[in-house]
Nucleic acid binder design. Structure first.
Lengths: 264, 264
DNA sequence: GAGTGGTCTAGACCACTGT
DNA sequence: CAGTGGTCTAGACCACTCC
């Protein structure tokens, strides 16, 4: 059993303090106060506070005050939605518009969305994208970046998707940022290109947020990011879209249902 | 753009050093050497090394030397295997035995497995298990804990599964630890209880390893853990098994294929 | 027992926040 | 501008590993 450093025990004591005396949103004692209260040096107290921030229990930027973190509303994303989205494609636009596909795609309730911006570019395909889409490395692709910011430091998300330019160019409307979010979602967009979707593959991994993600979004450092690489295949067998979807793991859950054939 | 601390720039410089001058498995310079080389204090160099250990680039315990980490062999776990496993249930035992279900379940190649131990207990159901299995909180369940250790500090894994005691008790062989791993896997075990599996749900999240997991397994601190809560449903609609499967995220990828109905 | 990584105290400095 | 969190240097001590 490794002997825990003093700051780790301190952090545990502070965590108990949070549970017993404080409520989410409360201001946390300052570092000097904590140092005196626990009889340690200011540095040690500061380290313990950092540790708890990394664990997602406290929040606050350097220079500002420290707060007991308000745990984010948990969100769920289910793969059963794929079939529902496909069924929706053949329905009239009014119905498509009311079904919140974009909301589901980001895994975030629209009621908490503060700002939603889309950016569309035509760029050279990164190697990993070219490999999946089976196009030549550096071939043109339509890259669509969607950023969502939320109220009250509840986080943000930034997803990127790639379509082969050669496919997307059949429908110029897809390049228009102002048409985003598209009623009916990506599945309907592909339909306008004459593409029927055969299956979706979700490749799920996790990793720590990059320094960029920590800085630009409100992901607490120390909270991992679930990364879903979503690949859409057409009935022709070809991969027609790749999307990289990051979900801060302290609020997201991905649910995949795999139905099995009956023996009968 | 937040100004990076000196130790972060230092860590970046060291990372470049790893990429250019060193190979995986090489010994990394000691902290005093690094301090002199980069003209900083020993403490700062030590912190940068810690940072890189948390990123998984370096490895080594306190007191021992530091090494350039050998990246673990990536493993993939696909939900398409569920159907294959179900098909296997009706095949003869010899065939079942040769198909490496247990290997797939852990997401780890058997060639790297060093030790494999199983422990079976009858315990009171934890609340979250009782809720999923729709049994009374505290009702008896068969808990099966499987631990795999690997060579060369490549990590370990520890999965837990729960079956309602009332179901499992129909087949006493399920309580026998020496019969693990069971040829054909859980799906065949359920078959011996007269249960046909209707569908599997995988609930995927991620979080940091607990202090226990870091200590007892060889997960580098800072590497997140993909957590798959796998729920098996019988054709009766009832949840018959819950399993908690942790995958160190620096080597695991979960792939979920969702086939969609054709319009035709 | 020498060397190593890790941590604590101490004092100083900096950037940023809030008022 | 005062207060706050964060970091660097400095020196010391400890537990552990390796020989």
């Amino acid at each position: 059993m490794a002997v825990a450093g003093k700051y780790q025990e301190l952090a545990a004591a502070m965590a108990r303090l949070v549970e017993t005396e404080l409520a989410p949103g409360d201001q946390f004692p300052t570092v000097p106060e904590l140092a005196e209260r626990f009889g340690v040096h200011r540095n040690t107290a500061s380290r313990a506070v950092q540790h708890l921030k990394e664990q997602g229990l406290l929040s606050g930027k350097g220079g500002g005050k420290t707060w007991v973190r308000v745990p984010p509303a948990p969100t769920v994303r289910r793969n059963t939605r794929y079939q529902e989205e496909k069924d929706l494609v053949l329905r009239p636009e009014a119905e498509r518009r009311s079904c919140g596909v974009a909301e589901w795609e980001s895994g975030i309730s629209l009621t908490t969305v503060y700002e939603d911006t889309a950016r569309h570019d035509v760029v050279d395909a990164p190697d990993w994208v070219a490999e999946i889409l089976e196009i030549e490395p550096g071939a043109k692709v339509l890259r669509r970046t969607r950023t969502r910011r939320h109220r009250k430091g509840a986080g943000a998300s930034c997803s990127v998707s790639y379509l082969p330019y050669e496919l997307a160019s059949r429908n110029p409307e897809l390049f228009d940022e102002s048409r985003d979010p598209w009623p009916g979602g990506t599945m309907h967009q592909l339909h306008t290109l004459g593409i029927e979707v055969d299956r979706i593959e979700d490749h799920v991994t996790a990793s720590m947020p990059t320094d960029e993600e920590v800085a630009e979004q409100d992901i607490p450092p120390g909270v991992p990011v679930l990364r879903d690489l979503k690949i859409t295949y057409a009935t022709s067998g070809r991969a027609v879209e790749v999307a990289a979807l990051p979900f801060p793991a302290d609020r997201a859950k991905l649910v995949f249902v795999t139905p099995l054939e009956r023996w009968s």
